[in-house]
């Protein structure tokens, strides 16, 4: 399957019905994408496909054909959201963090608190009660503008 992964053209051999989550973690060695439930409820496995956040545990690899896929590794390490999640303690145990950051990365600039809440409603965090995550996202937004 040929697709664009974190900005580079790749050609990965795996069964077309294998979960994209497993292909990313196993064939591509990108373990920043986490499995929390395997049924699309928790959002820990969130990646961006053609710019949209999806649960990679629900996506058969065949759907990656020709697509642009971005994982947490694709943000580098200097994305404002990553810095703000550190500064605002938006990450506690860290297992939901990659998915949470990717879901936050596609929120519109200047999103209100209500829009942030709706945008992150598919990503569960059991540690923070979400408040620190809102603070991190808002800090990153003000940094971007």
């Amino acid at each position: 399957m040929r697709f664009t992964l974190n900005g580079s053209a790749v050609d990965v051999a795996a069964h077309p019905m294998k979960r994209l989550l497993d292909v990313l973690r196993q064939e591509c060695g990108l373990t920043g994408t986490k499995e929390g439930c395997g049924e699309g409820e928790c959002g820990a496995c969130t990646v961006l496909i053609d710019g949209a956040p999806v649960c990679s545990c629900l996506v058969p690899f065949a759907q990656a054909d020709g697509a642009t896929v971005v994982t947490i590794e694709g943000l580098g390490g200097t994305h404002p959201l990553q810095q703000c999640f550190m500064d605002e303690v938006g990450a506690q145990c860290g297992i939901c963090t990659p998915g949470m950051i990717l879901a936050a990365a596609v929120l519109p600039a200047g999103a209100s608190l209500e829009e942030i809440r709706i945008g992150l409603a598919g990503n569960l965090c059991r540690c923070t009660g979400y408040s620190a995550i809102y603070r991190a996202v808002q800090a990153a937004q003000s940094r971007r503008t």
Binding site: L81, Q82, A91
Partner: peptide, 13 residues
């Protein structure tokens, strides 16, 4: 800064 902040925010942990 959390000691473990960057690894968690980048997915490297």
């Amino acid at each position: 800064s959390r000691k473990d902040g960057i690894g968690k925010a980048t997915g490297a942990t």
